[in-house]
Design a protein around this nucleic acid. Structure first.
Length: 461
RNA sequence: GCAGCCGUCGCCAAGCGGUUAAGGCCCCGGAUUGUGGUUCCGGUAUACGCGGGUUCGAAUCCCGUCGGCUGCCCCA
């Protein structure tokens, strides 16, 4: 990318450029209307669509770090990876996530393909995993079936810190066990992932929102209690009252919250089964030493949740207005809703971008060796050999031609790239089948036989 | 969808009606063609988001537009 990478203009302009708007095109507005691909100057804009930031090399290393932590934590806990499509038939999400949710009503990227099918970029992971679980016959496996996934999700939202239009989640879903023990395991695994990544202070909140037996009655009770308050509540809450009254409970408005203190809590109106599930859950959390806070106002924005719901939050200011890093719960009816056998399930998703925000500064890349040579072709051959031995190494690439640059230049390069060792392969070394190994931190160097090089480099400097 | 703030080189950033539009970082070269990090010297850039208006004169003022950030809604 050394030169002028920026200009993607298709036009075969001469360098002259004397006349500015001389030849056509500057009428400009032509292509830039809605799609907005060409920028104001008529060159192709290199900006990505809003809310879909590029993840540059310094960043990808941090992503890989998190991914490998998660992969490790999940696999030792017996969760197996599943990869499902990035888009599904729209119906999967409409029915799965819920017709009344904002996600479905205003945030989905829905399009029609050339066969006139309505497809939607996945706004979340669970619906697709449930679909695949059934389609792949996983429901015939001995339960519990424990799965995890990782990948991009898409929601059309206003961007801000910790919220993008394309964002990434890692999630788990455990099918086929209705007891609270697996709720606790799933939570444990989430905490393990966060801890493995190096996160320190976060808070686990739990609640139970009942099931299809007790929730309808509770909802009516709640609405009855809320209705007289409506005139004093915020516009959003008045709207929620009709759409999804439970969501009123986590309104951010102080005044609304003041009223909700007296309103009945779902926890006090659970059916017997839900009650016993909830009590056992709390016991297990205590037994396992998992610090938690019962938050009777904790609700979920997706319709499929039942019984246990939880969130792991952080108050770190780097998250901006966001606080939830991981959230999930039980969804005991969803499999059945998709036409499968009645199957209890529980899962969570955690937001990678949010985790990244909490992780702070970059992780250093580890370049073990940089080859400084008077013979670039020999250097390249040696690099190839070292790389095959698993040693990360690089070498100097002249801007043009194949003549070696000065050792000074090459050492500077080694320094810039942060190499632990410089491997000097000059005329003398080439003649004697040796190499001068220089420790870039201490400056000390020694001459060793070429054959011993890989062994030296696999040791820590 | 709503609200506030902001757009000057790849990045940070002066300038606030008349300037060849500072400076720093990065990058490149040299001092140092077999030895880096410091230092010194030199070099490169189609930078005032775009369009229109006011003005003798606009990066500076006005309008519009696009883009970014922050918050609301919602959510991981």
């Amino acid at each position: 990318m050394a030169t002028d990478g920026g200009n993607l203009d298709t036009e075969a302009t001469t360098k002259g450029n004397s006349g500015n708007p001389a030849d056509g095109g500057t009428t400009g507005t032509a292509g830039s209307q809605g799609g907005g691909r060409p920028d104001d100057k008529g060159t192709l804009s290199v900006k990505p669509p809003r809310g879909t930031p590029d993840i540059l090399p310094d960043e990808t290393e941090r992503w890989q770090y998190i991914e490998s932590c998660a992969r490790q934590c999940l696999s030792v806990a017996g969760y197996r990876e599943i990869r499902v499509p990035i888009f599904e038939h729209t119906e999967i999400f409409r029915r799965g996530v819920g017709e009344t949710t904002d996600i479905v009503n205003k945030e989905m990227y829905t399009f029609t393909d050339k066969s006139d099918r309505s497809l939607t970029l996945r706004p979340e992971g669970t619906a697709g995993v449930v679909r695949a679980y059934l389609n792949g016959g996983l429901h015939r496996l001995p339960p519990p079936v424990k799965l995890w996934y990782m990948g991009p999700m898409f929601r059309y939202e206003r961007t801000q810190t910790g919220r993008q239009r394309q964002f990434h989640q890692v999630g788990v879903e455990a099918f086929g066990s209705a007891g609270p023990l697996i709720d606790v395991e799933v939570i444990m695994v989430a905490l393990a992932c966060l801890t493995a990544v190096g996160l320190e202070s976060f808070e686990l909140q739990v609640n139970s929102i009942g099931c299809r037996v007790c929730r309808p009655a509770y909802r009516e009770l709640l609405k009855a209690a809320l209705e007289p308050l409506l005139p004093q509540l915020c516009d959003d809450c008045r709207e929620r009252f009709h759409r999804n009254a439970l969501r009123m409970l986590d309104c951010k408005s102080q005044t609304c919250q003041a009223h909700y203190g007296q309103v009945p809590a779902s926890l006090d109106h659970l059916c017997l089964d839900c009650q016993s599930h909830w009590r056992l859950l709390l016991e297990l959390l205590a037994q396992q030493g998992l610090a938690h806070i019962v938050n009777p106002r904790l609700v979920r924005g997706l319709d499929y949740y039942t019984r246990t719901v939880f969130e792991i939050l952080s108050r770190d200011p780097r998250l901006g207005a966001q606080s939830t890093v991981c959230a999930g719960g039980r969804y005991d009816n969803l499999v059945e809703m998709f036409g499968g056998p009645p199957t209890a399930a529980v899962g969570w998703a955690l937001g990678m971008e949010r985790l990244l925000l909490l992780l702070g500064d970059r992780i250093q890349s580890h370049l073990a060796a940089f080859i400084v040579s008077s013979s670039p072709d020999r250097a390249l051959a040696l690099a190839n050999q070292l790389r095959q031995a698993g040693v990360s190494c690089d070498l100097d690439f002249p801007a043009q031609g194949v003549a070696a640059r000065s050792f000074t230049k090459q050492l500077q390069q080694a320094n810039k790239l942060g190499a632990a060792w410089a491997v000097i392969l000059g005329e003398e070394e080439l003649a004697s089948e040796t190499v001068t190994l220089k420790n870039m931190a201490s400056g000390q160097q020694s001459r060793i036989a070429l054959a011993e090089l890989p062994a030296h480099l696999t040791r820590r400097p």
